[in-house]
Design a binder for these strands. Structure first.
Lengths: 98, 98
DNA sequence: TGACTAGCTTTGATGCACAAAGTGCTTTAT
DNA sequence: ATAAAGCACTTTGTGCATCAAAGCTAGTCA
């Protein structure tokens, strides 16, 4: 049995992994919160977010806080399923090693 | 708290992750067994193995089976520690998301 | 008006993953 | 003896991903 065959390619990036983790825990997270919690540059974050969005793992909501623009992100059903699948694969791998 | 800050960069590759898993479970694994279990080309495997070796995570043993050459790999203390640290970080992240 | 924030996009450099082919050595088959 | 095949690489080349930095647009606050 191959211990790694069910790992999701999209989640090999620590940043995308972090984004998904944050979005599993929080209903909505703003661009700036993601940026500071994951400690990345805005450009870098934006590009990872757009890959996740292209794969329909997350969705974007452009809104306001007071009169300031505020973009938030949330996980989709598809994304949740993909992420849980990945976690299951990781857990299987961890069990495998014990 | 950043959920991904303790993840090990070397273990972002599924192949290196797979090699380490195999070596956690088995005292020694041959080149060909790794190759077939992880389903990779020999060149690709060799290059990942050499990265792991450069980082002292694994060590090589060149021997024989009968009269045929047989190279096996095993995990080092350093590698075991690094891998366990990575697994702990993954587990923390998984817990974080639940 | 002038500085500042938010959220991107673009650019460009660097590095990595991977397949494929080549290599040197040995074994096994004919 | 010669050919074929296996083992364990190394080399080469391509394409892709990561990332920082800079640029950009639109709005905000002083």
């Amino acid at each position: 049995m191959n211990p790694i065959e069910h790992l999701n390619k999209l989640f090999e990036s620590r940043i995308r992994l972090g984004v998904m983790s944050m979005l599993m825990v929080n209903e909505e997270v703003s661009f700036n919160d993601l940026k500071s919690m994951l400690d990345v540059t805005d450009g870098n974050l934006a590009s990872h977010l757009s890959t996740l969005e292209e794969n329909a793992y997350i969705k974007v909501h452009k809104g306001f806080v007071g009169r300031k623009t505020n973009t938030t992100y949330s996980i989709t059903k598809v994304g949740e399923k993909a992420f849980k699948g990945h976690l299951a694969a990781l857990e299987a791998m961890i069990k495998f090693t014990q």
